[in-house]
Simulated assay, not measured.
Amino acid sequence: MTLTHCDSSGAASMVDVSDKPVTTREARAQARVLMSRATLQAIETNALKKGDVLATARIAGIQAAKKCSDLIPLCHPLALSKVAVDFALDSDKSAVNIETYCKLAGRTGVEMEALTAASVAALTIIDMCKALDMAMVVEGVCLIEKSGGRRGHYVREET
């Protein structure tokens, strides 16, 4: 396997995608923030002094997807046509589950944008809740599905 972000001498290099066809590219990613039951309840009842945690985390995730090329070296700046950040509260595991979705018509995929959105949404939840719970943990950040492009459709197997 050849690394695509290295030139012939091994130096970091941005991949030239100008010859690739424009196709619809989509990606979904996820993350989970584990926390105390009291913190989860405060999020659910919107009882934090900093404001609505999930609304703020949603905006942060969307912004992060749009700024991915500023954060991740060698990422192409992309004209995203859709970014979604959704949350599910899991009282059994005392967690907030995050799922993100990114879409565009372009020459390169949106996996990094979806992953960045999930990561930053999770970090925003921690930032907004850290006064209540310093022991929160982000886990399970991963790509769960992607489509479009040369490699086709990928769906993560359940683990």
Rank of each mutant, 00 (worst) to 15 (best):
K82M: 11
K67S: 13
I62F: 04
A64R: 01
T45S: 14
I72M: 08
A29N: 06
A60V: 03
I98V: 05
G61E: 10
N46G: 11
A38F: 07
V83P: 08
I43C: 00
A29D: 07
R25S: 07
A42V: 02
K49D: 15
A55C: 13
S91H: 14
A79W: 06
A79D: 10
A29E: 07
Q30W: 04
L80A: 10
G61A: 07
T45Q: 15
R32A: 12
C68M: 07
L48G: 04
R58Q: 14
K50Q: 13
C75L: 06
K93A: 15
L54Y: 03
S94K: 13
M35L: 06
A79L: 12
E99W: 03
D86N: 14
T23E: 08
L78E: 06
L48Q: 01
A31W: 03
N97C: 15
V53T: 09
L34K: 08
G51C: 09
I72W: 05
K66C: 07
K82Q: 13
F87D: 10
V85S: 09
D70S: 10
V85W: 11
E99G: 09
E44C: 08
K82A: 13
A88W: 05
V33P: 00
N46T: 07
I59G: 08
S36E: 11
V85P: 13
L34N: 05
